[in-house]
Amino acid sequence: MSEGTKVSAEKAHVESYGAGGVRAARSQEARQRLLDAAIVAFAHRGFHGTRTRDISESAGVSHGTLYVHFSSKEDLLFEISRTGHERELTVVENAARSSSDPAEQLQAIVHGFVIDHARNHTSARINNYELEALADEHQLEILEIRRGIRHRILSVIEEGARQGQFVVEDAHIVTTAITSLGIDVARWYRDDHHWSPEQIASYYCGLAARMVGRAPTSS
Rank of each mutant, 00 (worst) to 15 (best):
Gly21Ser: 02
Arg162Ser: 03
Arg152Ala: 00
Glu93Gln: 14
Glu79Arg: 15
His85Trp: 13
Arg45Ala: 10
Gly206Arg: 15
Gln107Phe: 10
Val14Cys: 11
Glu15Tyr: 03
Ala59Val: 15
Leu140Gly: 04
Val92Asp: 03
Lys6Thr: 12
Met211Asp: 01
Val68Asn: 00
His13Cys: 01
Val68Thr: 03
His172Pro: 03
Ser196Arg: 14
Leu154Ile: 11
Gly160Asn: 06
Ser81Cys: 14
Thr52Ala: 00
Met1Leu: 07
Arg45Cys: 12
Ile173Glu: 07
Arg87Thr: 09
Ala209Cys: 10
Glu158Leu: 09
Arg82Pro: 02
Arg152Ile: 00
His13Arg: 02
Ala59Ser: 08
Ile126Lys: 13
Val40Tyr: 11
Ala124Phe: 10
Asp192Gln: 05
Gly4Ser: 06
Glu74Thr: 07
Ala38Val: 15
Ala95Pro: 12
Val7Tyr: 10
Ala9Leu: 02
Val7Pro: 06
Thr50Cys: 07
Gly112Ile: 01
Tyr203Pro: 04
Arg146Thr: 06
Pro197Tyr: 05
Ser2Met: 08
Ala161Phe: 03
Ile39Gln: 02
Val168Ser: 07
His48Val: 08
Gly21Asp: 01
Gly213Phe: 14
Ala96Thr: 15
Ile183Met: 09
Ala209Phe: 08
Gln199Asn: 13
Ser27Cys: 07
Val110Glu: 07
Thr176Val: 05
Ala25Lys: 13
Ser81Phe: 07
Thr122Lys: 14
His111Arg: 10
Tyr17Thr: 03
His13Ser: 02
Ala9Thr: 01
Arg51Lys: 05
His48Ile: 08
Gly64Pro: 11
Ile126Met: 15
Gly49Ala: 08
Pro216Cys: 13
Ala161Trp: 02
Gln199Trp: 08
Glu79His: 13
Ser27Tyr: 09
Arg33Leu: 11
Gly18Arg: 11
Arg53Ile: 04
Glu144Arg: 05
Thr65Arg: 14
His151Ile: 01
Gly18Asp: 04
Ala209Leu: 11
Leu207Gly: 00
Ser71Arg: 10
Arg125Phe: 10
Arg23Gln: 04
Val212Met: 02
Leu35Ser: 01
His117Trp: 11
Glu10Gly: 09
Arg214Gly: 15
Glu88Thr: 13
Thr5Ser: 14
Arg23Tyr: 13
Ile178Gly: 09
Glu169Thr: 15
Met1His: 02
Ile178Ala: 12
Ser62Arg: 10
Gly18Asn: 10
Tyr17Asn: 04
His63Asp: 06
Ala25Asp: 08
Arg53Ser: 05
His121Tyr: 14
Val167Met: 07
Ala209Asn: 09
Glu88Arg: 15
Phe42Ile: 06
Arg152Met: 01
Tyr189Ala: 11
Gly206Lys: 14
Phe113Lys: 05
Cys205Pro: 14
Gly46Ala: 03
Ser180His: 06
Leu207Phe: 06
Asn127Lys: 13
Ala103Gln: 14
Leu66Gln: 05
His117Asn: 15
Ser218Asp: 11
Ala108His: 15
Arg53Tyr: 03
Gly164Thr: 14
Arg33Asp: 08
Glu86Leu: 12
Phe42His: 05
Gly206Cys: 15
Tyr203Phe: 08
Ala43Gly: 07
Ala37Asp: 09
His111Cys: 11
Val110Met: 13
Thr122His: 09
Leu77Lys: 11
Val14Pro: 01
